[in-house]
Design a protein around this nucleic acid. Structure first.
Length: 716
DNA sequence: AGCACGCCGACT
DNA sequence: GTCGGCGTGCTC
């Protein structure tokens, strides 16, 4: 793997869209606050003098409530749900009155007022009620608890993601009054789906239908989501839409505005800045706004009387939170749908294996257009295999097969042509050019990786390999690196000198392009929308997309191809797509037939057979070999758990930002995967959390640290 | 992770 | 005697 991040969407300049309520950044941003008064000798509240508090400490062995005494003066403000500050940590015990002093002040939430504590020691007093705003209601608390349990994490960590940092000024402003009545919902383009109008009618009638929706290609999806929201609002309930990035959020935002008018919904994205973010969130919390669209942190938005949750494009890595305990939007919204008994809509142009599983298990119903509709709405897809490319001398030189060349030239007469190239550094697994045998380290069999310059480097042990040759066929040429978007643009510019070439990628994402002929070179996830649709698209270097050593490589490649191809005109208007990839491969065939759901179903069957997620639940545990042995020895894993590994954790190459799960610099870490059959996921999470908490309490956390992660993303 | 407690060695 | 080393355990 190169020094670049492999996530296309994230690199497409959308990262700032995502909320990053990282503990550290919050801490850094913390302004020094006035010292609260001490409550020594103060009278306590007359009734329910004990407050149960969740302290903002993410560590697992502190993941429970702590009781504090409520001074009389704080009695009125100290209501369930408010933010409080308390003294926490080993403090000096004052012998005179038995109360505790000292210990640091930490933030927390008051979750409950009770008559007495079951703690036998003397209670410390609440130091301060930060504000009377009740930000954490029972619903959100319950959801956060469920998410923490699901991911073997702590409640405090989840609350950190779920409740945005306070901004006093935003709290002072009154939220606008609740919204007025809305027009009768109309199914609109949902009529394109056989059961679309039925789904909307169920929403409008207050029902809780659950659907996995394979959206037809084209731009109508945002409006269709808005219509689903509108139908839900008409039933007197609220709705929540979570999309993977700022651009799709803006599209749904615009669609909602067009359909509902101003002020009827909130847009929750991270680029808004703290004050606006908190103000919008409060408007939702206070019930002034009943519909929400946002990026992943919005998955916790405290929508009142939630009637519908929507996830768009759940395969996008932007839906996976980057902070402990790494909850995934789809999973969290599934939990919300189950807990709140509300409707659930999982939509996308493509379909994930998890989506297929929701249908297969009967939890959700499929919502798709019939084949005829799909064929009419999709572009014509043609393939150029690797072999064809190799035989095509001219093409190999120009890196553009003649078919692609023709289609581009033809398309450029009628409008813009999209060229999708994988991100440079997207190809982690090098292979022999002749026989395709993966290039492996001669010492440890790890995958060899190419750096910008210099010799090959082993991704596992870090050794240089200066003189690689293929052990199978004796070849000594490796398959070329992916050519980046910029160089592709230069090459194409020379090939089509009369046509403007534009690029969209990590540094600069184009949002839209006009209908005039142009070549638009883009990395996956950064494709601009073309006014009137692209005349054609070329999907280059398919082998690189498919060759990643990742369980999701096929699914991901298909999702990214479909993401580009869905921007192309339908075949009635001459829209054509060329994909340069082996035509026999399953994802390629699925693209040609435009059958992402079928692809997901077949993937699911294969995963079931191999015992892979999401059919079984997996957790990864990483740490030094000694720490792993110790941890696994102590943990009471469920009897049906299977431990796979350990295998070495790939080294963190210099320059790449460190991610959770990476070994600290200089340490050799290993990873095991723990697998349980369906139904034992909760037991697995519980066991891992208990074991982790126990060793933290024993102080093993620092030097003998292990990291636990449920549903790890990268199991190759 | 902090932070205070406790039980050893070196110093006035 | 008493100051302070950091190993160990707890946080209402």
């Amino acid at each position: 793997m190169s020094s670049e991040n492999e996530e296309g969407e994230r690199s497409a300049g959308v990262q700032p869209e995502q909320l990053a309520l990282i503990r550290d950044s919050v801490r850094k941003a913390k302004v020094p606050r006035a010292k609260p008064r001490t409550w020594r000798g103060a009278a306590l509240a007359g009734s329910l003098p004990v407050a149960r508090v969740v302290v903002d400490k993410g560590v697992l062995h502190l993941d429970r409530y702590f009781d504090y005494a409520v001074p009389e003066e704080l009695d009125a403000q100290a209501q369930p749900g408010v933010r409080v500050r308390v003294r926490f940590g080993a403090g000096t015990r004052n012998v005179r009155d038995g109360r505790r002093e000292g210990g640091g002040l930490v933030d927390g939430f008051l979750v409950e007022r009770v008559a007495e504590s079951d703690y036998t020691g003397p209670l410390a007093a609440l130091a301060q009620v930060v504000s009377p705003e009740r930000v954490l209601d029972e619903e959100l608390l319950g959801l956060a608890r469920a998410v923490a349990d699901r991911y073997a994490g702590s409640l405090a960590d989840v609350l950190q993601l779920a409740v945005p940092p306070r901004h006093a000024r935003a709290e002072g402003l009154p939220s606008p009054p609740p919204t007025a009545a809305r027009p009768e919902p109309d199914p609109g383009s949902w009529r394109r789906y056989a059961r679309g109008p039925e789904f909307l009618a169920a929403l409008a009638a207050g029902g809780a239908p659950r659907a996995v929706w394979t959206a037809l290609p084209g731009p109508l999806w945002a409006e269709e989501i808005a219509r689903a929201v509108q139908a839900t609002l008409a039933s007197g309930r609220g709705a929540l839409v979570v999309v993977p990035a700022g651009r799709p959020a803006a599209r749904v935002d615009a669609a909602l505005r067009a359909l509902l008018g101003e002020g009827q919904h909130a847009l929750l994205t991270a680029d808004a800045g703290q004050e606006r973010r908190y103000r919008e969130w409060l408007a939702v919390r206070r019930g002034a706004v009943r519909a929400v669209v946002g990026t992943r942190a919005a998955m916790f938005a405290p929508v009142r009387k939630l009637g519908l949750v929507v996830v768009w494009d759940d395969g996008d890595p932007g839906h996976a939170d980057e902070n402990a305990p790494f909850p995934h939007v789809r999973e969290v919204l599934e939990l919300r749908a189950s807990r709140d008994k509300c409707a659930f809509l999982l939509g996308g142009w493509s379909c994930t294996v998890e989506g297929a599983q929701l249908v297969e298990s009967g939890w959700a119903a499929p919502l798709a257009a019939d084949r005829e509709q799909v064929r009419a709405a999709a572009p014509l897809v043609r393939t150029v295999g690797d072999g064809d490319l190799a035989r095509d001398e001219a093409a190999r030189a120009a890196r553009l097969p003649s078919l692609a060349w023709q289609i581009a030239r033809d398309g450029l007469r009628r409008g813009p042509v999209l060229v999708q190239v994988p991100r440079r550094g997207y190809v982690p697994r090098l292979a022999c050019e002749r026989c395709r045998e993966p290039a492996r380290c001669r010492h440890c069999a790890g995958p060899l990786e190419a750096r910008d310059a210099g010799p090959l480097v082993c991704g596992w042990c870090g050794r240089d390999e200066a003189a690689w040759h293929c052990p199978e066929c004796g070849g000594f040429r490796l398959r070329a690196q992916v050519v980046g978007a910029r160089r592709t643009a230069e090459e194409l510019g020379r090939a089509f000198p009369a046509v403007p070439v534009r690029t969209s990628g990590r540094e600069q994402v184009l949002d839209t392009v006009g209908p005039a002929p142009a070549l638009v070179v883009s990395t996956p996830g950064a494709e601009p929308v073309a006014e009137g649709g692209y005349a054609a698209a070329l999907l280059l270097d398919g082998w690189a997309m498919l060759g990643r050593p990742d369980l999701r490589a096929g699914e991901d490649a298909l999702r990214r191809w479909i993401g580009a191809a869905a921007l192309v005109r339908d075949q009635g208007e001459g829209g054509t797509v060329v994909v340069v990839a082996e035509p026999t491969l399953r994802p390629v065939q699925a693209l040609v037939r435009w059958d992402p759901a079928g692809h997901a179903v077949r993937e699911l069957a294969e995963r079931a057979e191999l015992g892979f997620p999401p059919v079984s639940r997996m957790a990864s545990v990483t740490g030094t070999p000694e720490a792993l042995t110790e941890f696994l020895g102590q943990a009471h894993l469920p009897p049906d758990a299977e431990v796979l590994g350990p295998v070495p954790v790939p080294a963190v190459e210099p320059g790449r930002p460190r991610r959770p799960g990476d070994a600290p610099p200089g340490e050799r870490w290993e990873r095991v995967l723990v697998r349980v059959p369906p139904g034992s996921g909760a037991a697995l999470a519980r066991a891992l959390k208990t074991a982790q908490a126990a060793r933290m309490a024993r102080g093993l956390g620092a030097q003998q640290a292990v990291r636990v992660r449920i549903d790890p993303a990268d199991i190759g």
